[in-house]
Amino acid sequence: MAPQELSNGINGSSKPSLMKAVRFHGKGDLRLENIPEPHVGPSQVKLKPAWVGICGTDLHEYLGGPNLCPTTPHPITREKVPVTFGHELSGVVEEVGEGVNDLRPGDRVCVQPIIYDGTCGACEAGLVNCCYSNGFIGLSGWGGGFSEHMVIPRDAVYKLPDNVSLEVGALIEPLAVGWHAVKIAQLPPPPTAITALILGGGPIGLSMIQSLRAHSPNHTIIVSEPSPRRAELAASFGATHVLSPLTTNIPATVRKLSPGGWGAHVAFDCAGVQAGLDAAVESVRAEGKIVNVAIWEKPPRIDANSLCFKERTYMGVATYRKGDFAAVIDAVSQGLITPEAMISKRVEGLEGVLDGGFKSLIEERDRLVKVLIRANDVGE
């Protein structure tokens, strides 16, 4: 059996128990349905989801997909749309399968949703986030957080310390994206200070700020963000300067704000728009790095000469690797990251996922950052 092979089969009953789940059927089509309740197997954990965040990827799938959600059987899960949504989540352990000895019912946890085969070259190299057959719990099958119950591999479950709430537990996933991007950029260790530019002040951009600050308090962090509300949050989370790309020449201003006027050492593109990428490239100094964190709706245009003539590096980030979740949880527990202010709205119940969650984010995207859904009342 491959490390993440999973069977969410039901028991032998001819009339299986049913549960509620929010299922994605296609563009603009989310439905609250009754589906069979999964049963735990060996090396698996059954959870009752608590708080679940709506990710930008979820919005992209709803507005224009399916893109990442499989329309033919996924090579690992063997599932295709409709699939249960929700990959940013916390929950409470309900039951553990044979071979799981380090978790017990009642434990408070969060979920690292990467699905990987464990056998390809990337996985053998420890790069499970780059698995050649990869997918995500809550997008590619194996259930999702917008449900009454879910069953996932033990390796996907991380226990939360007592001083980390279930609400914050649902933020560990986007925080881990920022944490991993900082690691990939291979910044110099403290006390060396660098100038970093972040394009976009949404959930991932705010996660980038917090991860940079947790790694070093000395960095100059410049954020490009047009939304006044998100700009305020960027400043509150530790951005040194927040600029509006609508009124500011970003490359020229970044150069003025950097030592010697040479530009940023690194730019993290968390926006995924052409104008932002162009600004990022021109804002970075010679031998600087542009780190792509965003998922693009359309392929971008890259001016290779702008990279070559200044020996700049353009690199991608694929979510997070093993170890990143544990590091973020530890940083939150120690108070190095305090992300509660990212939560803009809380919605009670699976019935509110569409109107209170997705539609609110679409209609109020400039005002809302992270919307959390309470999938189940677990007593916290």
Results as ranks from 00 to 15, higher is better:
Gly106Lys: 00
Ile152Ser: 01
Pro189Trp: 02
Glu287Gln: 12
Ile222Phe: 00
Asp58Ala: 03
Asp324Tyr: 09
Ala326Ser: 14
Cys270Asn: 02
Gly12Thr: 05
Phe268Gln: 03
Ile194Glu: 00
Ala279Lys: 07
Val81Ser: 08
Pro42Gly: 13
Pro36Val: 05
Gly178Ala: 04
Gly379Arg: 01
Asn292Asp: 12
Tyr320Val: 06
Ala196Cys: 07
Ser244Met: 14
Gly28Arg: 11
Pro203Lys: 08
Leu103Glu: 02
Gly86Lys: 01
Leu233Met: 08
Ser7Ile: 12
Phe136Gly: 09
Arg285Glu: 06
Val96Thr: 01
Met315Thr: 15
Met208His: 02
Thr119Asn: 12
Gly178Val: 06
Ala235Gly: 13
Thr319Cys: 14
Gly169Asn: 04
Gly178Pro: 05
Ala341Glu: 13
Asn305Ile: 14
Ser14Lys: 15
Asp269Gly: 05
Thr195Lys: 00
Glu79Cys: 03
Asp330Thr: 15
Ser306Arg: 14
Leu171Val: 08
Val100Glu: 00
Lys359Leu: 14
Asp29Ile: 07
Ile343Met: 08
Asn8Leu: 09
Glu5Leu: 13
Gly28Gln: 07
Ser7Glu: 11
Glu61Ser: 06
Glu311Asp: 09
Ile373Pro: 07
Thr192Gln: 14
Val328Arg: 09
Asn305Lys: 13
Leu206Thr: 02
Val100Pro: 00
Ala331Trp: 07
Lys15Pro: 11
Val182Leu: 04
Met19Cys: 08
Ala280Lys: 07
Thr220Pro: 05
Thr72Ser: 15
Val177Met: 04
Gln274Trp: 01
Lys20Ala: 10
Gly56Met: 05
Arg346Ile: 15
Gln186Leu: 06
Phe136Ser: 12
Leu160His: 02
Leu171Ala: 06
Gly352Leu: 09
Arg255Lys: 11
Arg367Trp: 11
Ser165Val: 04
Leu68Cys: 12
Gly118Ala: 04
Ile114Lys: 06
Val52Thr: 07
Pro73Cys: 01
Lys27Val: 09
Glu340Arg: 11
Lys256Trp: 12
Ile10Gly: 14
Val273Asn: 06
Ala214Asn: 10
Val266Ser: 03
Ser14Leu: 15
Tyr116Trp: 10
Ala234Trp: 11
Lys256Pro: 13
Pro191Tyr: 03
Met1Phe: 11
Ala181Phe: 05
Gln44Pro: 04
Ser17Asn: 15
Lys48Leu: 10
Ser236Met: 09
Ala122His: 12
Asp107Ala: 07
Thr77Met: 06
Arg374Thr: 13
Leu103His: 01
